[in-house]
Protein backbone atom coordinates (compact mmCIF):
# COMPACT_ATOMS: atom_id res chain seq x y z
CA UNK A 1 0.00 0.00 0.00
CA UNK A 2 1.22 3.42 -0.91
CA UNK A 3 0.89 4.80 2.58
CA UNK A 4 2.41 8.17 1.76
CA UNK A 5 -0.68 9.20 -0.11
CA UNK A 6 -3.21 7.40 2.05
CA UNK A 7 -5.89 9.34 3.91
CA UNK A 8 -6.30 8.49 7.58
CA UNK A 9 -9.89 7.98 8.67
CA UNK A 10 -11.29 7.10 12.05
CA UNK A 11 -14.53 5.41 13.10
CA UNK A 12 -17.26 6.38 13.80
CA UNK A 13 -17.30 8.08 10.40
CA UNK A 14 -19.36 11.19 9.74
CA UNK A 15 -21.38 11.62 6.55
CA UNK A 16 -19.24 14.64 5.66
CA UNK A 17 -16.00 12.67 5.75
CA UNK A 18 -17.48 9.78 3.80
CA UNK A 19 -18.98 12.04 1.13
CA UNK A 20 -15.54 13.58 0.54
CA UNK A 21 -13.91 10.23 -0.28
CA UNK A 22 -13.34 9.36 -3.95
CA UNK A 23 -12.71 6.14 -5.85
CA UNK A 24 -9.02 5.32 -6.17
CA UNK A 25 -8.05 6.91 -2.85
CA UNK A 26 -6.14 4.79 -0.37
CA UNK A 27 -7.23 5.00 3.24
CA UNK A 28 -5.80 3.88 6.57
CA UNK A 29 -8.58 3.05 9.01
CA UNK A 30 -8.36 3.38 12.77
CA UNK A 31 -11.03 2.75 15.39
CA UNK A 32 -13.57 -0.04 15.80
CA UNK A 33 -14.83 -2.08 12.87
CA UNK A 34 -17.34 -4.97 12.93
CA UNK A 35 -16.99 -8.21 11.01
CA UNK A 36 -20.20 -9.26 9.26
CA UNK A 37 -20.53 -11.99 6.69
CA UNK A 38 -23.27 -14.29 5.40
CA UNK A 39 -25.04 -15.24 8.63
CA UNK A 40 -24.81 -11.82 10.30
CA UNK A 41 -26.15 -10.14 7.15
CA UNK A 42 -29.09 -12.55 6.87
CA UNK A 43 -29.80 -11.86 10.54
CA UNK A 44 -29.49 -8.07 10.30
CA UNK A 45 -31.78 -7.97 7.29
CA UNK A 46 -34.33 -10.26 8.95
CA UNK A 47 -36.02 -9.37 12.22
CA UNK A 48 -33.24 -9.15 14.77
CA UNK A 49 -33.96 -8.76 18.45
CA UNK A 50 -33.11 -5.12 19.25
CA UNK A 51 -31.90 -6.14 22.71
CA UNK A 52 -29.57 -8.67 21.22
CA UNK A 53 -26.74 -6.74 19.64
CA UNK A 54 -24.71 -3.56 19.42
CA UNK A 55 -27.28 -1.87 17.12
CA UNK A 56 -26.45 1.65 18.11
CA UNK A 57 -22.75 1.11 17.61
CA UNK A 58 -23.27 0.31 13.94
CA UNK A 59 -24.20 3.91 13.09
CA UNK A 60 -21.13 5.48 11.48
CA UNK A 61 -19.24 2.22 11.63
CA UNK A 62 -17.55 0.01 9.06
CA UNK A 63 -18.83 -3.51 8.43
CA UNK A 64 -16.03 -5.84 7.38
CA UNK A 65 -16.81 -8.86 5.22
CA UNK A 66 -14.45 -11.20 7.01
CA UNK A 67 -14.47 -14.57 8.74
CA UNK A 68 -11.26 -14.44 10.74
CA UNK A 69 -9.05 -17.14 12.20
CA UNK A 70 -9.19 -16.37 15.93
CA UNK A 71 -7.78 -18.33 18.84
CA UNK A 72 -8.85 -18.17 22.46
CA UNK A 73 -6.75 -18.58 25.55
CA UNK A 74 -8.55 -18.12 28.89
CA UNK A 75 -11.09 -15.73 27.43
CA UNK A 76 -8.45 -13.70 25.56
CA UNK A 77 -8.87 -13.71 21.82
CA UNK A 78 -6.03 -13.40 19.31
CA UNK A 79 -6.60 -12.60 15.65
CA UNK A 80 -4.35 -14.85 13.57
CA UNK A 81 -5.55 -14.09 10.03
CA UNK A 82 -8.24 -11.66 8.95
CA UNK A 83 -8.45 -10.78 5.28
CA UNK A 84 -11.64 -9.90 3.41
CA UNK A 85 -14.13 -12.38 1.96
CA UNK A 86 -16.03 -12.00 -1.33
CA UNK A 87 -18.58 -9.20 -0.91
CA UNK A 88 -20.88 -10.37 -3.69
CA UNK A 89 -22.55 -12.86 -1.33
CA UNK A 90 -23.79 -10.03 0.91
CA UNK A 91 -25.21 -7.98 -1.96
CA UNK A 92 -28.86 -8.85 -1.52
CA UNK A 93 -28.85 -7.70 2.11
CA UNK A 94 -26.56 -4.70 1.94
CA UNK A 95 -28.84 -1.88 0.68
CA UNK A 96 -31.17 -2.51 3.65
CA UNK A 97 -28.30 -2.89 6.13
CA UNK A 98 -26.69 0.38 4.97
CA UNK A 99 -29.84 2.47 5.19
CA UNK A 100 -31.37 0.83 8.27
CA UNK A 101 -28.30 0.82 10.52
CA UNK A 102 -26.56 3.95 9.23
CA UNK A 103 -23.36 2.11 8.34
CA UNK A 104 -20.84 4.45 6.64
CA UNK A 105 -18.39 1.93 5.23
CA UNK A 106 -18.58 -1.57 3.80
CA UNK A 107 -15.22 -3.30 3.54
CA UNK A 108 -14.56 -6.48 1.61
CA UNK A 109 -13.16 -7.65 -1.70
CA UNK A 110 -14.37 -7.93 -5.27
CA UNK A 111 -16.82 -5.02 -5.19
CA UNK A 112 -20.61 -4.92 -5.05
CA UNK A 113 -23.56 -4.40 -7.40
CA UNK A 114 -25.09 -1.25 -8.87
CA UNK A 115 -27.95 -1.62 -6.35
CA UNK A 116 -25.50 -1.43 -3.46
CA UNK A 117 -23.71 1.53 -5.09
CA UNK A 118 -27.08 3.28 -5.34
CA UNK A 119 -27.79 2.65 -1.63
CA UNK A 120 -24.35 4.07 -0.82
CA UNK A 121 -25.14 7.17 -2.85
CA UNK A 122 -28.45 7.68 -1.07
CA UNK A 123 -27.24 7.07 2.49
CA UNK A 124 -23.66 8.35 2.31
CA UNK A 125 -21.52 5.24 2.48
CA UNK A 126 -18.42 3.92 0.67
CA UNK A 127 -17.07 0.53 -0.34
CA UNK A 128 -13.56 -0.11 0.93
CA UNK A 129 -11.52 -2.72 -0.89
CA UNK A 130 -8.99 -4.71 1.13
CA UNK A 131 -6.53 -7.14 -0.42
CA UNK A 132 -7.95 -10.63 -0.50
CA UNK A 133 -5.74 -13.33 0.92
CA UNK A 134 -3.62 -10.85 2.85
CA UNK A 135 -4.81 -12.45 6.07
CA UNK A 136 -1.54 -12.31 7.99
CA UNK A 137 -0.66 -8.74 6.99
CA UNK A 138 -4.14 -7.41 7.83
CA UNK A 139 -4.27 -9.27 11.16
CA UNK A 140 -1.23 -7.25 12.22
CA UNK A 141 -3.33 -4.08 11.88
CA UNK A 142 -5.87 -5.43 14.36
CA UNK A 143 -4.79 -4.38 17.83
CA UNK A 144 -7.56 -5.84 20.00
CA UNK A 145 -10.79 -7.79 20.03
CA UNK A 146 -13.28 -5.49 21.78
CA UNK A 147 -16.22 -7.85 21.78
CA UNK A 148 -18.03 -10.64 20.03
CA UNK A 149 -21.68 -11.29 19.38
CA UNK A 150 -23.49 -14.46 18.21
CA UNK A 151 -20.38 -16.57 18.80
CA UNK A 152 -22.19 -19.67 20.03
CA UNK A 153 -24.90 -19.55 17.42
CA UNK A 154 -22.89 -18.65 14.31
CA UNK A 155 -19.41 -19.97 15.18
CA UNK A 156 -16.06 -18.14 15.05
CA UNK A 157 -15.94 -17.44 11.32
CA UNK A 158 -19.52 -16.13 11.11
CA UNK A 159 -19.83 -14.32 14.45
CA UNK A 160 -19.76 -10.51 14.61
CA UNK A 161 -16.42 -9.42 16.05
CA UNK A 162 -15.77 -5.87 17.17
CA UNK A 163 -12.14 -5.25 16.25
CA UNK A 164 -9.96 -2.29 17.15
CA UNK A 165 -7.77 -1.49 14.17
CA UNK A 166 -4.90 0.88 13.56
CA UNK A 167 -3.94 2.08 10.07
CA UNK A 168 -5.79 -0.77 8.40
CA UNK A 169 -5.14 -0.32 4.64
CA UNK A 170 -7.89 -0.26 2.03
CA UNK A 171 -8.84 1.52 -1.17
CA UNK A 172 -12.10 3.33 -1.89
CA UNK A 173 -13.49 1.49 -4.92
CA UNK A 174 -17.15 2.60 -4.75
CA UNK A 175 -17.77 6.15 -3.52
CA UNK A 176 -20.88 7.95 -2.30
CA UNK A 177 -21.48 9.39 -5.78
CA UNK A 178 -22.00 5.82 -6.95
CA UNK A 179 -18.72 5.77 -8.93
CA UNK A 180 -17.26 2.25 -9.00
CA UNK A 181 -13.85 0.99 -10.10
CA UNK A 182 -15.39 -2.48 -10.34
CA UNK A 183 -18.02 -1.27 -12.80
CA UNK A 184 -15.33 0.51 -14.86
CA UNK A 185 -13.09 -2.58 -15.01
CA UNK A 186 -16.04 -4.78 -15.92
CA UNK A 187 -17.05 -2.45 -18.75
CA UNK A 188 -13.56 -2.28 -20.24
CA UNK A 189 -13.00 -6.01 -19.92
CA UNK A 190 -16.34 -6.74 -21.59
CA UNK A 191 -15.35 -4.73 -24.67
CA UNK A 192 -12.06 -6.61 -24.85
CA UNK A 193 -13.76 -9.97 -24.30
CA UNK A 194 -16.14 -9.37 -27.18
CA UNK A 195 -13.18 -8.53 -29.41
CA UNK A 196 -11.52 -11.82 -28.49
CA UNK A 197 -14.47 -14.16 -28.89
CA UNK A 198 -16.27 -12.67 -31.85
CA UNK A 199 -15.66 -14.02 -35.30
CA UNK A 200 -14.88 -17.59 -36.25
Amino acid sequence: MNNKKAIKIETPLTEEIVRALRVGQNVLISGTIFTARDKVHAYLAGSPDPEDMPFKKLAGSILYHCGPVITEDNGRYSVIAAGPTTSQRMQMYEPFVISHYGVRGIMGKGGMSAEVAQAMKESGCVYLHAIGGAGALLAEKIKAVEGVWKLEEFGRAEAMWALRVEDFPAMVTIDSRGESIHAQVEKTSKERLLGLIQGR
Binding site: G67, V69, I80, A81, G132, G135, A136, L137, P169
Partner: peptide
Amino acid sequence: QMLENARIAKNSARPLCQDT
Protein backbone atom coordinates in the same frame (compact mmCIF):
# COMPACT_ATOMS: atom_id res chain seq x y z
CA GLN B 1 0.60 -6.44 -0.30
CA MET B 2 0.37 -10.06 -1.44
CA LEU B 3 4.16 -10.45 -1.35
CA GLU B 4 4.42 -8.64 1.97
CA ASN B 5 1.66 -10.87 3.35
CA ALA B 6 3.56 -13.96 2.19
CA ARG B 7 6.66 -12.72 3.99
CA ILE B 8 4.77 -12.03 7.25
CA ALA B 9 2.91 -15.35 7.11
CA LYS B 10 6.09 -17.34 6.59
CA ASN B 11 8.07 -15.50 9.27
CA SER B 12 5.32 -15.62 11.86
CA ALA B 13 4.16 -19.15 10.87
CA ARG B 14 0.57 -18.08 10.51
CA PRO B 15 -1.87 -18.76 7.67
CA LEU B 16 -1.57 -16.63 4.53
CA CYS B 17 -5.33 -16.31 4.39
CA GLN B 18 -8.08 -16.64 6.99
CA ASP B 19 -9.88 -19.02 4.63
CA THR B 20 -7.60 -22.00 5.06
